[in-house]
């Protein structure tokens, strides 16, 4: 059997995807052919190196975010959830307005949304002036 046909079998050979007959064919050829033997060794080394790549764990923040997305689907629970949220926000608004004196002289602050472009190809770019509001990727404030 010629080298090009054996080369095609080298990946399946190291991955344990060959039949018994094919394994015997590869091993016989390897005994006689230095080039294919070298290629096989290189493939095995590459396999080990790729398997050795350290995959980091996703952060706890992402886990919380993902689990947090799964809101209750039940319509009744949604109403309760929305009602409680609106009531809470309303109460907070009343309390805030009730305790803060109105300052007529104060110049209103201007806020700019700061967008962060984070890709493997880019520097992190910030182009803004004034006070910052940190945003998530959907544009909501954090």
């Amino acid at each position: 059997m010629n080298c090009s046909k054996i080369e095609e079998l080298l990946s399946p050979y190291i991955d344990g995807e060959l039949s018994r007959d094919e394994i015997i064919r590869v091993e016989r050829h390897i005994l006689e052919c230095k080039n294919c033997e070298e290629l096989l060794k290189d493939f095995q080394l590459i396999k080990e190196k790729v398997r050795g790549i350290e995959i980091p764990q996703p952060s706890l923040r992402i886990k919380k975010k993902i689990i947090g997305y799964a809101r209750p689907r039940n319509y009744f629970l949604r109403i309760i959830f929305s009602t409680s949220l609106l009531t809470g926000l309303g109460a907070l608004l009343v309390l805030t307005l009730g305790h803060q004196p109105y300052i007529a002289e104060e110049k209103p602050k201007e806020y700019y949304i700061m967008k962060e472009e984070r890709t493997p190809y880019m520097e992190i770019l910030y182009e803004t002036e004034g006070d910052y509001i940190l945003t998530n990727y959907e544009g909501g404030s954090l």
Binding site: E8, L10, S11, P12, D15, E17, L39, D42, I46
Partner: peptide
Amino acid sequence: VKSRLNRARKELR
């Protein structure tokens, strides 16, 4: 799949 894996390993080598 076999041929792509072979090509990938050759390119990595």
